[in-house]
Design a binder for these strands. Structure first.
Lengths: 338, 338
DNA sequence: ACGCTAAATGATTGCGCAATCATGTGTCAA
DNA sequence: TTGACACATGATTGCGCAATCATTTAGCGT
């Protein structure tokens, strides 16, 4: 009852082991009749390839590594979902790693992944350590950075500009007449910092920049923290008339806290979220948010790796910017609300 | 510049390859001095083990397979997070699979995972096909079913009783005086059906069972669908006075729709969610929900696999029920609200 | 019918490691 | 001093597959 090998299948089908191997990997190089006989033998014996042996012999595993900073951040659940939908139809599989937003953990995970001779790697962001960057430059497989935008990716990057997305949101709020807009940032990972920079740039441009309006916390985002941060913010800056959040959870929390305080949204207070995870659009009033194409980013990243694995070239455009969409909703549309 | 092997390290350290291998896997069997020399050599050469070779030679990979029905269901993001927190400190890695709530996809994924000679498997639920069940019974590694409860697991099961959790919620609503309580179910996967059964059982017990109060849809849950389902429900059953949702998203959507309709919660309408994902507790009013120990389930499942891998025995209690907690909040506490 | 080429199939080898068994080395009791 | 024994280290082998090269067969024009 041992697990059958290529040799067993070969014997059953009356061919050599290598022909079976070929029939599986390059069927066009094996005659029709043999293919059928081999298929029958595989079926009969219940043969399943041994990926370890294949990997060892070919110096190439069938693993695609996906490195994300957090599983509980739903943004990455979506990315994973997109990548999976593309990969699951192939013979490849996804191995995941969680860096916990820590560069050194990330380094360790990259080292581990590189040792797998993966088909490709997907990794969030551009802010790797020098050592990490070096490993990624050197590894013999496509590497896709995601959720960000840069002219100098390791290989290619699929994402959008966090700076621009935040700037567009800020500009929208300014357009709607808000002047004392706060930035609320949780976790403060590199992408959040870029959003903060984009926000700040627009504030400065309109000469309404005020450092007192920047509220940040290293805690992870949540609806609950959003409520607390709004309370703190209004204590500290009572004349604050709006907020841009680095995350939808926080925006929802703030929206709920406004309900409780009977703070009129959008009239007296504007709210803008980030990522458009679904709840913002259903709130009362509906909350403006920046839709980011997370699922598509996962799909495109995975597809690029498959294309390269199939022999495709590195494309000319290495910065694949899928953009973002500012979903303007009631929570900031003060002009229409009057 | 080739990747160094055990032999290279051995030469560098002046020992044989197998001693290096031992130093890595069973350090206590190698003398202190050699261990140091070997460690230095490994460092100098930047040696990283080849998992494929190891797996081939030992007939045992370092992979723990986790099979979930969906990545975008945040419940499983939490499970994954819990499992990862336990596993990341070890030399093992997580390979994930998405069954898409489809038994045949699940079968295929199990087949694939089994072929990896994994350290262990974690799989959601108990409703595998006969073929799946067979493979799981046969595979030579610990298998942990999760998110459910049964006296007859494949190996062990870590979870809670969906039937009991729903029944407890229903009983609570009945205790609060609700009599025309609807069940709103999305996706209708096996666990949702168990919740429905638990709910139904309590309704029958109190002789207030009415099939018209069961609203189900194959769509996945979301805040948006929750709003729509409430609208449909109130059209169909105007005297409905409460709802038990199989999922928090739906409960939040219903809560928001009640806000919009100025339907007084909990006075005229009670709402209970499931899973307690975080937003329910922050709503106005706060929504009652059943907290399920998702992260802990992931942790315990992973820990069990590690224990078994380290030579531990199969425990006596194979049904590890971590329970649930009904978080009674304003949305159902009608007696207190008056 | 002959030789040429292309297509189909096979034989051999080694990937890097761990299982197994073999050997060396030191310690201690009698 | 000897032998028994534990402990430390090494040599050999094979895991199942794919890369490489070798061989056979089929198809074709002249």
């Amino acid at each position: 009852m041992k697990r059958p090998t290529l040799i067993d299948v070969g014997i059953e089908a009356g061919v050599s082991a290598i022909t079976v191997s070929r029939a599986l990997r390059e069927p066009e190089k094996v005659s029709e009749s043999l293919r059928e006989r081999i298929a029958k033998a595989i079926d009969k014996l219940g043969y399943v390839p041994n990926p370890a042996a294949s990997s060892l012999a070919s110096n190439r595993s069938s693993i695609i590594g996906v490195l994300v900073p957090s599983f509980s951040n739903y943004v990455f659940a979506d990315v994973l979902s997109g990548a999976n939908s593309v990969i699951e139809k192939t013979g490849y599989s996804i191995q995941i790693g969680n860096t916990g937003y820590d560069p050194l953990t990330e380094e360790a995970m990259i080292r581990k992944f590189v040792s797998l001779s993966p088909v490709g790697l997907i990794i969030a962001g551009v802010d790797q350590t020098e050592t990490s960057r070096n490993m990624l430059e050197t590894v013999d497989c496509p590497v896709v950075q995601i959720m960000d935008s840069t002219d100098d990716p390791v290989d290619v990057i699929v994402g959008f500009s966090n700076f621009e997305a935040a700037a567009a949101s800020a500009q929208h709020m300014v357009d709607q007449g808000y002047r004392r807009i706060a930035f609320v940032g949780t976790r403060m990972d590199p992408r959040t910092q870029q959003r903060m920079a984009g926000f700040e740039s627009v504030m400065r441009q309109h000469q309404i920049y005020d450092p007192a309006l920047f509220i940040t916390t290293p805690q992870k985002s949540s609806v609950e923290i959003g409520r607390h941060l709004l309370a703190g913010l209004l204590d500290k800056v009572p004349d604050c008339d709006g907020v841009f959040c680095n995350n939808d959870d926080v925006a929802v929390g703030i929206g709920l806290e406004c309900q409780r305080r009977n703070l009129s949204v959008p009239k007296d207070f504007g709210i803008c979220g980030f990522n458009d995870l679904g709840t913002t659009s259903q709130m009362n009033p509906a909350i403006t948010s920046v839709y980011t194409p997370r699922v598509e980013i996962g799909e495109r990243a995975a597809q690029y790796i498959l294309d390269r694995a199939a022999g495709g070239p590195q494309p000319d455009i290495r910065n694949i910017d899928l953009g973002f969409t500012l979903k303007k909703r009631a929570s900031t549309l003060r002009s229409e609300a009057i």
